[in-house]
């Protein structure tokens, strides 16, 4: 069962979050305005990302990441009997041109560079095919998607989406369940950490912006990323402990009350509908 949609309705960030939270495996193909991307996932982690039909060999990836010179790259490729990454990696290690961690870091940087490009696309369509995974003989590196989403949100063009998600800055933020352990495993920038450390019942988003010395739009952008990664959400009125009593009364007044029937009425409804 494929998941199809349009980036205008359901953004790449939202799709990545879905894949991450539901720990999905499969292939996400995105058809942007003038180029396409293919992202591969296993158990909610990003394994590989290619943009524009590119299919770089490991030597090219490392060369682009500045970990290999052109001459070294040519020498290794001349020795290889195929363009498979595993053989290239073995030759690189044997020649002492790259270490295991150079290879992992180079591939990781390549994956991130590609996936970040997708964040800049606001138009296009996507199809996610669950459980379809084929990357030939490419070396893959599992990348945590929450990290990708938070860092990628910095590259989003549309300031509209931030305002839509967070129209009012005088609200409190709340961490979602399990956010603490996920945050500890993430790599984030300093500004993101500052926002995380100030978030919670003590500060509104506006106060965070003042205390962290970030502009309103900067804070919106960071909070948007953290929200997209399901780490934070805007607190509901009852989740804010120190709301003043007049605040609370105002909110209560705005609430719509349901009908409070007797238990007997509900059980009669249940019995009748069961019999239908």
């Amino acid at each position: 069962m494929a998941l199809r949609g349009n980036l205008r309705d359901f953004s790449a960030t939202q799709m990545l979050n879905l894949i991450s939270v539901a720990r999905k495996s499969g292939t996400l193909d995105i058809e942007g305005v003038d180029t396409q991307a293919r992202l591969l996932f296993n158990q909610g982690k990003l394994l590989y990302a290619a943009v524009g039909g590119q299919d770089y060999r490991l030597t090219e990836v490392l060369q682009r990441a500045g970990k290999l010179t052109e001459a070294q790259s040519r020498a290794i490729e001349a020795q290889a009997s195929s363009s498979g990454d595993r053989e290239l990696a073995w030759l690189l290690l044997r020649a002492g041109y790259a270490s295991r961690s150079d290879i992992i870091r180079g591939v990781r940087a390549h994956i991130l560079r590609n996936v970040f490009r997708v964040f800049e696309w606001s138009a296009g369509t996507f199809v996610f095919e669950p459980n379809r995974l084929s990357f030939g003989d490419r070396i893959t590196v599992p990348v945590d998607l929450a990290t990708v989403i938070v860092a990628g949100s910095r590259r989003l063009r549309e300031a509209d989406s931030f305002r839509e998600e967070l129209p009012n800055l005088d609200v409190h933020l709340r961490f979602t369940r399990g956010a603490g352990s996920r945050l500890r495993k993430m790599r984030m920038g300093l500004d993101e950490w500052r926002v995380v450390s100030l978030a919670g019942p003590r500060n509104t988003v506006r106060e965070i912006s003042n205390q962290a010395d970030l502009s309103e739009d900067q804070v919106r952008r960071i909070v948007y990323g953290l929200m997209q990664a399901d780490l934070l959400h805007v607190a509901l009125p009852e989740e804010v402990p120190e709301a003043t009593s007049s605040d609370r009364r105002r909110k209560e007044g705005a609430r719509v009350r349901g009908q409070r029937p007797s238990r007997n009425v509900i059980t009669r409804l249940i019995d009748r509908i069961r019999q239908l």
């Binding site: 069962m1 494929a2 998941l3 199809r4 359901f10 939202q14 979050n17 879905l18 939270v21 539901a22 399901d230 959400h233």
Partner: peptide, 14 residues
């Protein structure tokens, strides 16, 4: 065909 599952909708719509 291609209906989003209830669990995917839960995540998508928070």
């Amino acid at each position: 065909p291609d209906a989003w599952s209830p669990e995917d909708l839960r995540v998508a719509l928070r």
